[in-house]
């Protein structure tokens, strides 16, 4: 019927347009920041899962580099051992937590005291409050990174944003963060940076307070059987690893969500199929299909 035909045609036109435009037009800069290149993440798509080793390396990068300034207040050490995450062993997270001195109390004397961290403790914050953080960082406030991978995105533009529904592109945040961490450059001629300012090609407006923090060889990765790290110890690799870790921290139940989703989706399609045939069977009782039936 007309309405169906028209809407179907309109939908098809949009989709065809989207596909062809997407394959033709290269990504272009918008709003001061260059569009980040897409990275091939292990967690993208309907079957994506986190790479445990990568998350463990990512935690190490966060711990040794980022955590000097950035808090992750929603994260607790126990999270590091939960299913679908880095899956450190219980013993490992107890050791990781015990590395930190946690302020607790007050005790019976009414005084705060320090004790070794426990798995149920939150990641300690580098600064007691925002003012202290700003004071230590030349006025800039290092953000909490707990859900940063979901709190960042970039504009996809007309055909792509529709296409993303089909390709299930959800990695705008991670792509942007990884590009940002490795996007430091010398400012173009004629641009004077003030102290505490840095030039980053992916930052909106290009001026960023955070300096380049990741350098090749800076973080030592666990060695494989051959005495060498299985992945290169480069800034690029550090960036990918720590961003994967941040993505997991932002969406810790992603693996459970996708696996349940696959089952639910298949169930609903099968059920819809059954309902379709049941519907056909029931409607076949109607007079125009069964002439002579009682009215």
């Amino acid at each position: 019927m007309t309405l169906f035909r028209t809407s179907l045609a309109a939908f098809a036109a949009i989709m065809i347009g989207a596909f062809s435009a997407a394959s033709l037009s290269p990504a272009h800069a918008a709003g001061g920041g260059t569009k980040p290149p897409a990275h091939d993440w292990s967690f993208d798509g309907p079957f994506g899962t986190f790479d445990r080793a990568q998350l463990q390396r990512g935690y190490k990068v966060y711990r040794e580099v980022c955590s000097a300034c950035h808090a992750m207040s929603l994260m607790r050490f126990r999270n590091l051992s939960q299913k679908g995450g880095p899956e450190f062993t219980e013993a490992q997270i107890r050791a990781l937590a015990a590395d930190f001195k946690i302020s607790d109390g007050p005790n019976e004397q009414g005084e705060m005291f320090e004790r070794p961290g426990r798995p149920s403790d939150a990641f300690p914050k580098p600064f007691p409050n925002e003012q202290a953080a700003r004071a230590a960082n030349g006025g800039a406030y290092p953000l909490d990174l707990s859900v940063i991978a979901k709190a960042r995105n970039y504009e996809r533009g007309f055909p792509l944003f529709l296409l993303d529904i089909i390709t299930q592109y959800q990695e705008g945040g991670p792509d942007y963060l990884k590009a940002l961490l490795t996007g430091y450059e010398d400012p173009p001629k004629g641009v004077e940076l003030l102290p505490g300012q840095n030039w980053n090609k992916y930052m909106a407006g290009n001026i960023i307070g955070m300096p380049n923090m990741l350098n090749d060889g800076q973080v030592e990765y666990p060695k494989g059987a051959d005495g060498k790290s299985p992945v290169p110890e480069t800034a690029k690799q550090y960036a990918a690893d720590v961003v994967a870790f941040l993505m997991w921290s932002a969406e810790p139940h992603m693996e459970q969500r996708k696996s349940i989703g696959r089952q639910v989706f298949i169930f609903l399609l099968l059920f819809a199929g059954l309902l379709y045939f049941t519907k056909k069977r029931i409607w076949s009782r109607l007079p125009e299909h069964a002439p002579g039936a009682a009215h």
Partner: peptide, 17 residues
Amino acid sequence: AYFLFFIPNYLGHADNY
């Protein structure tokens, strides 16, 4: 279910995180 399980943040806005 497709949106809910596979692209749950597609219809939302990153800034709300």
